[in-house]
Simulated assay, not measured.
Amino acid sequence: MLNLSGVTRRYGDTVALKDLNLIVPEDTYMSLLGASGSGKTTLLRLIAGFEEPDAGQLWLDGERLDGKAPHKRDIGFVFQNFALFPHLSVQENVEFGLKHRETAACTDPRELADRAAEALQLVGLDGFGHRGVGEISGGQKQRVALARTLVTEPRIVLLDEPLGALDANLRNRMCDELRAIRERLKVSFLHVTGSETEALTMGDTVAVLSDGKIAQADGSTKLFTRPQNAAAARHLNAWNLLGGTARGGALETPAGSFQLPRTLADGTQGQIALRFDQLGVSDPDSVPGGHSHFTARYVTGEFNGPTALAFFRAPDGALIQVVDHLGEPRLPELTEGRTYALHYAPEDALLFEGAAT
């Protein structure tokens, strides 16, 4: 188990990570989701030992990590750009860590070749050892980088946006393969990504990194359906957030007045969260019974294959998104510039305390 406690990392006046706490359990695939510049790579570099925290502690299987050299941590790191040696063959790349590590280095050519072949077979590249790095595809390079990491039998594997350089089709295939490899090895993977879809697809658990802290760490389904705070909801790119002030049992926002799903003291700042796929659209005089609603002007639509997004402008200019699944379409034909009622079941709305950021 990896345990980070009160970890802080500063760069001059900039605080990249602030009093961060995170637990990565044994035998799990955890996704770490965060926006660009949120500190995701910094966090990985602290775990790997490429940087040291300004405060806090890091533990792996009960052993203190901070202050220990990277090559003594038994941690695997798969870089975003793969970091393969172009002058070495695929087999030589995989053998490199075994051959040059400080302790228990493997120098027997036969053992090196056998262990490299086993690692390549594990990632589906049996028979590729003789090839040059320039002779294989991007997806194959990704697998070579993973094999080079796994052959050293690390206690945990860190993956820094490992699918970012791959095309969409290959990315989907590698998602399945990475999960299958991890399950066979029973080693924890910590997979950093800026894609909410990738994070939810890959992770048994998904941790959201926001403002230098973990906003929420939960199972992917629970995180998506019931985020605990506005920061987590915002990073999922599936929730509309409307901020305002509580008064008389409602949240008064520039977009309208919203019934509060729970009690909030008058004058308290809060945000109503409405999920894209839980908003319906109708004429203002045709709102379904029992539904709450507010009005917004239809701007445009965006076709995404199996889904379509409809974009609306609230009276205050806030952009509201509504998703439609083309297999079961539920939205009426929309006219640009026309005002519609956006309605929802009151129990589907979430309320987060605090002002909008």
Rank of each mutant, 00 (worst) to 15 (best):
M1W: 01
I47Y: 07
E102S: 14
K213H: 13
T149K: 08
G249Y: 10
A355V: 06
D27A: 07
F311Q: 10
T8H: 10
A246Q: 02
H293F: 15
L326N: 14
L264V: 08
L84R: 02
Q216I: 02
L17C: 03
D19Q: 11
R234E: 15
E161H: 06
L32M: 05
Q57C: 07
L190P: 03
L185V: 01
I23K: 09
R179Q: 15
L209A: 04
T205H: 04
G249C: 12
H235A: 15
G219D: 12
L120W: 00
S137T: 14
S292M: 12
T107F: 10
M1K: 09
A230N: 06
R182I: 00
V187P: 00
N21Y: 06
T225Y: 08
T103E: 14
K40T: 10
G256V: 07
A116R: 10
D160T: 05
S137R: 11
E252K: 13
I75L: 02
V133R: 04
F85W: 13
H130L: 11
D176M: 11
T8M: 07
A16H: 03
K99Q: 15
M30I: 02
F294P: 01
V206D: 02
D74I: 02
G267S: 06
E347I: 13
E347W: 06
D74Y: 01
V299R: 15
T201V: 10
S286D: 15
Q278T: 14
G317D: 11
V24C: 08
L264G: 04
H325N: 13
T28Y: 00
E302Y: 09
D13C: 04
A147G: 07
L122N: 08
L20S: 07
L309F: 15
G132H: 01
L260D: 07
V94Q: 09
E333K: 11
R171P: 04
F352C: 07
A83M: 00
K222T: 14
R275K: 15
A180E: 12
N93P: 04
I181C: 06
L150T: 09
A48D: 06
A116N: 10
S292T: 10
